[in-house]
Amino acid sequence: MRRHKERAPWKLIYARPLSIWWDDLRRNVKIDPQDEPLSPIMSVTDTIMTAKGASQTARMIYLLPLMLLSWFVLYISVNVLYPINIDKLEERSNSFIDSSKERFGDDYFIITENETSLWFYNIVGSDGKISVSEYLKYREDQDGGYLYLGLKVLFFIFCLSIALFCTYHMVFFRRQADFFFDRERQIVYTWHHNKVMGCKFENLGIIENKLGLIMFMYGEYPKRGQYQHIFRYMQPTDKGYFCTEEDNNYFLAAVLKFMEEGKSAIITDDEFHRPKSFSLMEDKQPEDFEHRLEEVLKRQHQLVDLYAENEIKQAEADKKIF
Results as ranks from 00 to 15, higher is better:
152 K>A: 10
152 K>Y: 01
153 V>S: 08
154 L>Y: 06
154 L>C: 14
155 F>R: 04
155 F>W: 10
156 F>D: 00
157 I>G: 05
158 F>I: 12
158 F>S: 12
160 L>N: 03
160 L>W: 03
161 S>D: 03
163 A>N: 11
163 A>T: 10
164 L>I: 15
165 F>C: 11
167 T>M: 15
168 Y>E: 12
168 Y>Q: 14
168 Y>L: 15
169 H>K: 14
170 M>D: 02
170 M>G: 08
172 F>Q: 01
172 F>A: 10
172 F>N: 10
173 F>W: 13
173 F>E: 10
174 R>Q: 13
174 R>V: 15
175 R>I: 11
175 R>S: 10
176 Q>F: 02
176 Q>T: 11
177 A>F: 08
177 A>R: 09
178 D>F: 08
179 F>N: 10
182 D>M: 03
182 D>P: 00
183 R>M: 04
183 R>I: 02
184 E>I: 00
185 R>P: 01
188 V>S: 03
190 T>M: 02
192 H>K: 12
195 K>Q: 11
196 V>N: 07
196 V>S: 08
197 M>F: 05
198 G>Q: 07
200 K>D: 06
201 F>M: 11
202 E>L: 11
204 L>M: 14
205 G>I: 06
205 G>K: 09
207 I>E: 06
213 L>I: 08
214 I>M: 12
215 M>Y: 01
216 F>P: 00
217 M>S: 01
218 Y>P: 02
219 G>Q: 08
221 Y>F: 12
221 Y>L: 11
221 Y>Q: 09
222 P>I: 03
225 G>V: 03
227 Y>R: 08
228 Q>R: 15
228 Q>A: 15
229 H>A: 15
230 I>E: 07
235 Q>T: 10
235 Q>S: 15
236 P>I: 02
236 P>V: 01
238 D>H: 02
238 D>E: 11
239 K>N: 10
240 G>I: 11
245 E>Q: 15
246 E>I: 14
247 D>A: 12
249 N>L: 15
249 N>T: 09
250 Y>K: 12
251 F>N: 09
254 A>I: 07
254 A>M: 10
254 A>P: 03
254 A>Q: 05
258 F>A: 13
259 M>P: 09
259 M>Q: 04
266 I>F: 04
267 I>P: 06
268 T>C: 00
